[in-house]
Design a protein around this nucleic acid. Structure first.
Lengths: 229, 229
DNA sequence: TGATTTTGTTACAAAAATATTATATTATTG
DNA sequence: CAATAATATAATATTTTTGTAACAAAATCA
């Protein structure tokens, strides 16, 4: 259940600092002082997120990141780069290579932990959505076919409507902000008004007809997929 | 509630463009054409984020950034640098100096607004509310669902009521002032009377029924969530 | 390409939540 | 116990939030 974090960092003090704080927050931690060691373990053991120092003996962090993102079995593992002040140009390179975030030394452990939590949560949200059909009473959502039926009758949704519905329905009862919905439908930093989410919900409700009761507004917060009467 | 943005930019057209778009998105905006002016206001007035043009008469953006990050009272304010194409080396310098992000001219106002939103959000997440469920005797609070139950029976609360209850209940036994409660519910400097907090508590108590005994008035100070019978 | 669909915005109406005011009530203190 | 201070509450006013229609822009497609 607890998330596993790999740390690749040659400076023992920093490694310890990070490790200590993560463990305190119930993460499982494995420490490495080089990319080689890490890859060896990674070949037989999964992990949820990798913290990668840029400056390393042997392969540097950017090279490791590139390797991770090039390999299909590891490309989905989020990577957070740790850079020292003065290595900022590497940040840009790193993000281009597919790193998910970066943090600049010296950093507060609190910030690091918060950052990791955010990334893992985001990933979790995306993962939970995938594939599995969803059946709630008369409503059926089939992600593989981008298809929704109500009492067996097919409902034509646009791609965004589908994603939004699917997102909400994948965590019935949970309330999401408009921002979270947009983020899920379009990705990060997508610039839209709150009102467009409302409009999308209107469209959804209209098309869902009798099943529209599942799309519930939570005033002051956002929307949710109702999970019980 | 609304976030305050300081813009330091000598080109009036660009300043206006940014300002206009931010205001449209409910940000409070203060414009400056030099660092000096900005620092003067900043000494007596807080702000949530600073947009900093690099090329400025007098102190340039990088110098201003350095000053901001050197001073303890301003170091936590996120800084976004505005650079023209061709000033990429300044971006790196800026990030080294502690700037949080950068945006290259010409930029789309929408993207800028989205970027600012992300940065502010990221900062907030550090102090973000705990998503863990809270269970105190017969009362259960589930932040993910914005749901409260008493003896299993669901209680319908407004968003503010929920936030207030969650805030109090997250530290049972601790006394909070009305001001602290408002700050937690609405954010900084939200102007309301003490009486409105009382009214909110009345609403809460009414809805909580038997569990209303947990919302305790501490005369002369504020309220607290009672942690024992 | 032009037509069609999808998506986003604006503006305004409607609904709900919230704040304030003006009392009433309760606690505290000398 | 009266005098005072603080809080509770009801009624009302204000503000915020949401729903929705109409239009504009962008994307898609045939």
């Amino acid at each position: 259940m607890n998330k596993k974090v790999f740390i690749v960092e040659d400076d023992e003090d920093i490694r310890e600092l990070i490790s200590y704080n993560l463990k305190k927050n119930n993460y499982l931690v494995k420490e490495f002082d080089s990319g080689e060691d890490m890859f060896e373990v990674l070949s037989s053991e999964k992990c949820d997120i990798i913290l990668l120092d840029i400056m390393l003996p042997g392969d540097d962090g950017l090279t490791i990141c590139k390797k991770l993102k090039r390999n299909e079995s590891t490309e989905d593992i989020p990577v957070v780069m740790i850079t020292a002040k003065g290595e900022e140009s590497d940040i840009i390179t790193g993000l281009e290579l597919g790193a998910d975030d970066y943090i600049v030394k010296p950093f507060s452990p609190k910030v690091l932990v918060a950052r990791i939590r955010t990334i893992l949560r985001r990933k979790e949200q995306v993962e939970e959505i995938n594939r599995e059909d969803i059946n709630v009473h008369e409503l059926k959502i089939v992600p593989g076919r981008y298809e929704v039926t109500v009492n067996g009758e097919k409902i034509d949704l646009t791609a965004s409507e589908f994603k939004a519905l699917h997102f909400l329905a994948s965590k019935p009862g949970w309330v999401f902000t408009r921002y979270q919905i947009v983020e899920n439908v379009h990705g990060n930093n997508y610039p839209v008004t709150d009102r467009s989410v409302d409009v999308m919900m209107v469209g959804l409700r209209k098309k869902l007809k009798s099943a529209s009761k599942y799309v519930e507004t939570i005033r002051g917060i956002g929307y949710r997929f109702k999970d019980r009467k």
